[in-house]
Amino acid sequence: MFPSARLLLFCLLNVVMSEKLASVDFEIFGNVQGVCFRMYTEDHGQSLGLSGWVKNTRTGTVIGQVQGPVDKVDKMKYWLQNVGSPSSRIDRAVFSNQRHISKLEIHGFNTRY
């Protein structure tokens, strides 16, 4: 390997390894069941390259967890609070247990039942 290629590889690895990761739990209130909210959440999380899960509750809310780079987790939080699925109505989004993590604890994004 050429010295310049090694230097480039070293720099890229440092950027990737120094990327800050976050984890956050969420609960979404409103008209969020029966409107494909879980499917859209899973699709949006995957499109951002995030890991996590989403699930309906017996009380009519949607809960889940999101993990990934801080900036992408923030984008997902905005989406959960302000966008959602086309037919949903989001009254309130509660985020809890937000923390920095050193590595992903969940791999992939899926719907739980």
Results as ranks from 00 to 15, higher is better:
M1D: 11
M1C: 10
M1E: 15
F2V: 03
F2L: 10
F2Q: 10
P3H: 08
A5L: 12
A5Y: 05
L7R: 08
L7S: 09
L7M: 11
L8I: 11
C11G: 00
L12F: 11
L12C: 14
L12A: 14
L13I: 04
L13K: 11
N14L: 15
N14D: 12
N14E: 14
N14R: 15
N14Q: 15
V15Y: 02
M17Q: 14
M17H: 10
M17L: 15
S18W: 01
S18K: 12
S18Y: 02
E19G: 05
K20S: 13
L21V: 12
V24W: 07
D25N: 12
D25W: 02
F26W: 05
E27A: 10
I28Q: 07
F29P: 05
F29I: 09
F29Q: 09
G30L: 09
N31Y: 10
N31C: 13
N31L: 14
N31K: 15
V32M: 06
Q33L: 09
Q33W: 08
C36Q: 08
C36Y: 11
C36R: 09
F37M: 05
F37Y: 13
R38D: 06
Y40P: 00
E42Q: 12
E42W: 04
D43T: 06
H44W: 04
H44L: 00
G45F: 06
G45P: 09
Q46T: 13
S47T: 08
L48Q: 03
G49Q: 02
G49S: 03
L50F: 05
L50N: 04
S51E: 02
S51Q: 02
S51T: 03
G52R: 03
G52V: 05
G52W: 01
G52L: 06
W53C: 02
W53F: 11
V54H: 03
K55Y: 00
K55G: 00
N56Y: 07
N56W: 08
T59W: 00
G60N: 09
T61N: 11
V62E: 00
V62R: 00
I63H: 04
G64D: 10
Q65R: 08
V66I: 14
Q67G: 01
G68K: 01
G68Q: 01
G68F: 00
